[in-house]
Nucleic acid binder design. Structure first.
Length: 568
DNA sequence: GCCGTTTTCGGCCCGACTGTTTTCAGTCG
């Protein structure tokens, strides 16, 4: 059994224990053990004694060892016999947790959604202790929408929603300051709901106005400090607003940004010092409440450097940020090396793209229109590439302190060959190779295609290496460890595509690539001048992978870049 | 179930809201 399967088994055990209404610390012990395994970089056969990992003790170690030896867990098998499988999806219903479901199973023999609905309709639930008429009505109503809308939303889908909410919040005059928090602020790939922290001296008035926001379809909670609503855009999405007094804004923002596990780490840290963290501030031993102007000051209080939201994952950040951590930031970016113009499927001319890039303070861009194979995107023929070079030459002569590199995003064809021959590629400043076809080929064939491209001396970059679209398609079957190794051998860079639908490569692989000495390029793949703005999403993703600016080619000055690409 | 410079028992992050109670359990983040 491999690590992934063991982690899955431990998590499944935790779910079953939850459904039995077990002690919550016991449940989280199994989850902790699963996390401990996941975080350890070694594979199962490289770990000699699992018990040595923090968070794994006698009990969970014996489960792990049994899984390793027999491929089964007697505990899990036993639990499966005791607890009906149909209860598991019901844990996702809002308002129903393990304890309540355990009660429903024991008292009314409810084993799945169907029997739960029946019991509600027959009014058998309202008589149970701890339940009432309202609980019954609520369960019926959540059952109705069960499974209708997606579990989590891809980040790209909620970006415009957040912008819309922010715009409305800005117009409420009782709100002093506000910010989006939660997994959106941490820039997770997908988010379940949205959180906003609001500083106000008039919480009642502000709360009232929040209930009148556009798209509000339901009010989930309406308290003094928390307003929870459902908004309907394409799908219904939950939005929590937390109202705090202005002086508590920084600690509240930290608290509601999370992650949950990051907060636990911070609170454990505080506890060791005899202090207590809550959203309202830090309570010292003598009962004094300290608040802060900024999150940075809050972290400094614990002798930590400012931990950016993207890295608040609850793993090693409280250790690593004892020191100053060198991470890439948006100011380091000096150019963008993947974008399209009206020559293929872009919306703006080359000149417009260049002007927009200058506006952002860049030193250079590369124009990388599609190659001839990609007919749907109006891919360029060799002749057109040559004509385009003339236009770029003309434009360059009119610029001072800015350069356009000639480029192409060349298709790696289904048979593994490249769309242009070497003689043409030789003349192009920046050559990107990428896959846009035959996604369903097996791993061997996909790797054969990628490796052929990597081995071509003219290819400078592999774009969106996995082809994934977050929440929509998983991409083609790439052996990423092998891709990284071959990229290192051939001195080819790998792309971090900043388009929020892609974010490809993902942070874990960026970290691996950087550790192996592979260079990265963070590009927007803009098809419109406004999409040059997507760079910030790439930066956030890079920071999640602990990427340093020296790893990233488009932090180089134009001189350094030309030298690296052997253009002079 | 895990853990230990308040150690082998008794804690385990902390608080808001709801719906049930009549002081609190369960759920959620």
């Amino acid at each position: 059994m491999n690590k992934k399967e063991i982690v899955k088994a431990l998590e499944t055990i935790a779910i079953y224990l939850e459904l039995k209404g077990e002690n919550s610390f016991k449940i989280s012990a199994y989850r902790k053990a699963a996390r401990a395994l996941e975080e350890d970089l070694r594979s199962m056969n490289q770990i000699e004694h699992v018990e040595d990992l923090p968070g794994i003790g006698k009990g969970t170690a014996s489960v792990i060892n049994e899984l390793l030896e027999t491929g089964q867990s007697s505990l899990l098998e036993e639990l499966k016999k005791e607890v009906p499988t149909g209860l598991i999806p019901l844990l996702k219903l809002p308002g129903l947790g393990g304890k309540k479901l355990a009660k429903l199973y024991e008292q009314l023999n409810i084993i799945d959604a169907k029997s739960l609905q029946k019991a509600c309709e027959e009014n058998r639930i309202q008589h149970l202790p701890g339940f009432g008429k309202k609980s019954e009505e609520k369960i019926l109503s959540v059952l109705k929408d069960f499974g209708k809308s997606p579990d989590r939303f891809p980040i790209a889908m909620v970006i415009p929603i957040v912008a819309d909410i922010e715009q409305q919040l800005a117009s409420i005059k009782e709100i002093d300051r506000f910010a989006v928090a939660g997994s959106y602020r941490r820039f997770s790939e997908t988010v379940k709901d949205l959180d906003f922290v609001i500083a106000t001296k008039k919480p009642e008035v502000a709360a009232e106005k929040l209930l009148k926001l556009k798209h509000v379809s339901d009010v989930i909670a309406n308290g003094e400090t928390k307003v929870s609503v459902e908004l309907i855009y394409e799908y219904p999405i939950g939005v929590d607003f937390r109202l705090v007094e202005p002086h508590a804004y920084a600690t509240a923002l930290h608290h509601f940004t999370g992650s949950q596990n990051h907060n636990i780490l911070m609170r454990q840290l505080a506890k060791k010092r005899g202090e207590k963290i809550s959203e309202y501030g830090i309570e010292t031993e003598n009962g004094e409440l300290i608040t802060f102007e900024s999150e940075e000051e809050f972290f400094n209080h614990f002798q930590l450097h400012d931990i950016p939201p993207e890295l608040r994952i609850g793993e090693k950040e409280t250790e690593r940020f004892k020191e100053d951590v060198d991470l890439i930031s948006i100011e380091d970016i000096k150019g963008d090396l993947h974008m399209h113009s009206t020559w293929s499927d872009g919306a703006n001319t080359i000149e417009e793209m260049a002007l927009a890039a200058m506006e952002k303070g860049y030193e250079y861009i590369a124009i990388t229109d599609h190659s001839q194979f990609l007919k749907v995107a109006n891919g360029l023929t060799p002749d057109q590439i040559k004509q385009q070079r003339e236009e770029i030459k003309r434009l360059n002569s009119s610029f001072s302190n800015f350069a356009i590199l000639t480029g192409v995003e060349m298709d790696i064809l289904p048979d593994g060959t490249l769309d242009f021959d070497d003689a043409l590629l030789e003349e192009i400043d920046f050559v990107i190779a990428s896959i846009h076809s035959s996604f369903s080929q097996n791993r061997d064939k996909i790797m054969q295609r990628l490796i052929h491209a990597l081995n071509n001396v003219h290819v400078d970059l592999i774009a969106h290496p996995t082809g994934r679209l977050i929440g929509r398609r998983s991409g083609y079957d790439v052996d990423l460890d092998m891709l990284i190794d071959v990229a290192k051998e051939t001195k080819t860079a790998l792309e971090l595509n900043s388009n929020p639908n892609r974010l490809d490569l993902a942070p874990k692989w960026l970290e691996k690539a950087q550790n192996k000495g592979v260079k990265l390029v963070i590009n927007t793949d803009a098809h419109h001048e406004l999409m040059l703005e997507h760079m910030k999403y790439g930066i956030a993703t890079a920071r999640k992978g602990w990427v340093k600016s020296e790893t990233v080619l488009n932090t180089y000055s134009i001189g350094e870049l030309r030298k690296h690409l052997n253009l002079d």
